[in-house]
Design a protein around this nucleic acid. Sequence first.
DNA 1: GATTTTTTATAGTGGTCGCTACAAAAAAAT
DNA 2: ATTTTTTTGTAGCGACCACTATAAAAAATC
Lengths: 174, 174
Amino acid sequence: MRLFHARGYDAVGVAELGAELGIKPPSFYAAFGSKAGLFERTLRRYAAGEANVFARALAAGGDVATVIGRTLALAAELYPGQGGTAGCLVLDGARNSADPEAQALADAAKREGRAAVRDFIATEAPDRADALADLVVVAMMGMSAAARDGADRERLERVAAMMDRAFRRELAGA
Amino acid sequence: MRLFHARGYDAVGVAELGAELGIKPPSFYAAFGSKAGLFERTLRRYAAGEANVFARALAAGGDVATVIGRTLALAAELYPGQGGTAGCLVLDGARNSADPEAQALADAAKREGRAAVRDFIATEAPDRADALADLVVVAMMGMSAAARDGADRERLERVAAMMDRAFRRELAGA
DNA sequence: GATTTTTTATAGTGGTCGCTACAAAAAAAT
DNA sequence: ATTTTTTTGTAGCGACCACTATAAAAAATC
């Protein structure tokens, strides 16, 4: 997970993944089937853990504006990463990958995440849920990209606060 | 440029680039020195053309809010791309690249673009120029990523309009 | 027209990719 | 303890990578 997160799907080789896990290629393929197989499990574990900032924000309760604001704040806190694991693995892990399978897996994970955000927003603003979800997703993707380009936590939190205000305004306004 | 834009730096091979240009590898290296050498020229041409949405928005005149709003609108119009060239080549062309030279070239281009936006914003809001520039850059990066993930022009324009309102609010507000 | 210079294509450099055949070693079962 | 099964390491599969030595063709010069 750390390797995929830090360098992206294509830039990490099976031999290196095996070395990190303490196994050799044949054992790797016996365990995961393929490189994409491990990536799938990696995405699943990533999305099931603390990296799912929306799920964490949702669990803490509150109305839509509160939860989305918390989601953005948690992303700003998480995305600087450590040891090179900046940004979001789901959003950027397969970016520019030449492997269609890896792209499809990341795409599915992104759709899942966006759908959760959209459906939650729809509980308060059903007719504008899609547009508002796009705002949130674009904000997250932008923050993830900025983090991957070296933005630190302070800058991300500043952006997250502005995005939060933007979301509240759009949710409340016409 | 089209190939780098559509698939990212690493996913395009020198042989394929040569085939597109109608030349073979030796001529390719005689002309550009290296794959990164062509990428540098590609970035330069890209940033000097209509893809530099901020330069185009600036040339059309107006105050900071107007120019930034126009920048975002032009990005929403440009980023869906055609023939697979979605998003921004500078922002995403070397994303997850394993080549340090390509990363450095894209990074330099990004810094240049951000500096232009920041300096322009500073003409009206010198003390908040950095934060506001981050807002714009994150919005652009998010829109570029969304476009690469398949977002069409309508959705990008909707997001751009919201980002524009967010920027105006932050520029005017406390 | 002959000679020199430049440009080009052919072919191949070593290296890495995801992945696997095969056989040795370890574990389990009899 | 012997046999069977599973797991593992060694080695290598073909394919592709960025890049280049060499030599033939084309262009330019004389």
